[in-house]
Design a protein around this nucleic acid. Sequence first.
RNA 1: CGAGAUGUAGCGCAGUUUGGUAGCGCGUCUGGUUCGGGACCAGAAGGUCGCAGGUUCGAAUCCUGUCAUCUCGACCA
Length: 480
Amino acid sequence: MAKENKQEFVQHITPRSENFSQWYTDVVTQTDLMDYTPVRGCMALRPYGNRIWELIHEQLDGMFKETGHENVSMPMLIPESLLLKEADHVEGFAPEVAWVTHGGNEPLQERLAIRPTSETLFCTMFAKWVHSYRDLPMKYNQWCSVMRWEKTTRPFLRTAEFWWQEGHTVHATADEAQEETLLMLKVYQDFCEKNLSIPVFAGQKSDKEKFAGARATYSVEAMMQDGKALQAGTTHNFGTNFSEPFEVKYLSKEGVLEYCHETSWGVSTRLIGAIIMTHGDERGLKLPPMIAPFQAVILPIAAHKGGVMEHCEEAYKQLKAAGIRVKLDDRDNVSPGWKFNEWELKGVPVRVEMGPRDIENGVATVMRRDTFEKTTVPLANLAEGIQALLNDIQANLFNIANDFRLAHTKDVFSYEELAEQVDGGYARAMWCGERACEDSIKEKLNATSRNMPFDQTPIADTCVCCGKKAEKLIYFAKAY
RNA sequence: CGAGAUGUAGCGCAGUUUGGUAGCGCGUCUGGUUCGGGACCAGAAGGUCGCAGGUUCGAAUCCUGUCAUCUCGACCA
């Protein structure tokens, strides 16, 4: 009976190797991260998933503060006239805007967009708040949700409503704006690599792929375990594209009225999807310790026997005092074996088993989720031992993901090589810079340009697509 | 938005072809024995069959519409 049970449960998750997409959906829905709602394409974040987002929020917010940013809050609704002010912007977002048309029972004179992003609101307010060069730079951020009426949705990766942060800054000079754009890209890269253990490619987007209304867009691109690309974060330099229509101007030291230079940047709950797809395995989630809601879970074995619960509680206190996010699973209605599987499914980095045998020996049996390696740690320095393990797991997850990424990234020199490489990986190629080649690659290979790395050392002279003189080194991949 | 599939108890499913009392497994609850990789025994509870119309004496089952989810494609800062 027990064995049949287990098979049924494990079969629940479609094998990752068999159907990556289905595996992802199964993991997402069976780990209490989110649930579907009656609203089309909108998910509910459940406590476990929401806690991951809170940890991302806390840690990123700290990095924003360190780089001199402050949080503000803007309205959810944007009057249509404001959205229409920047031509490229409205063209880019119009197809996916949800509209409010009534206030109570009265039709509105002007319909209101539910924000798909808040550039237009920020610009309107910046126009009021910025007067002098003394007011600059103004570096703001907001944590909120936005809505985009997507045609097809997928949990975390593309939902109609999603939670994110959007930073918006105003600067006196083009140089400062560019510096800010690259600084925040670096912040995102560091956050992905250090906090989430997700290695990324940082670089500049092509004109075809850049943000609606931006002069330059940059991105950090992650690689999922099926070799497809996921844009993990972006930063934009708007130059004066928005400040001109919105009249965001300042009086310079020299007494001249100048347009401001603006930037924006954002990451979203999509990062949770990236974590799942980068680290997960056949048994479910594998969470990097830094954003794991529980970094360690203590499981009593034979809890009814003398001393077991007492020792577990003591260990709990010790770990908690050491600042480790720890859970004592003292449920008496499921067996230890059940708990093992459940917490592995939910991706808890370290499991601490405490049974009569451990207590006799003055140790705890500890298993790490990334390698399934079991060790014993003396109770006297349990906290130190587990903290060391957590650090090691954090680093190991990055290394595994990084090895995978490098193994699935290749320099390509011909169209045939490109076609082969984008089927399950990133292709690093030379490109003439023409939109036509990107369009053709998209149409024939279903791959898009991801970004152009900052190190532009050429690997060839001719475009991988048309054979004309190459201008740029660029990554191509199929993307989520 | 196009093609295909699915929607029945908390979860996984059968029942739909051929209309006739709402079923199974797991979980849940109660009591007891267990506890180092998904424990066992006994008893119990739990469902307007996605939603709205229609056909019929009678609809989970047939028809129409609609909503949601999945797969593939198109689209997509």
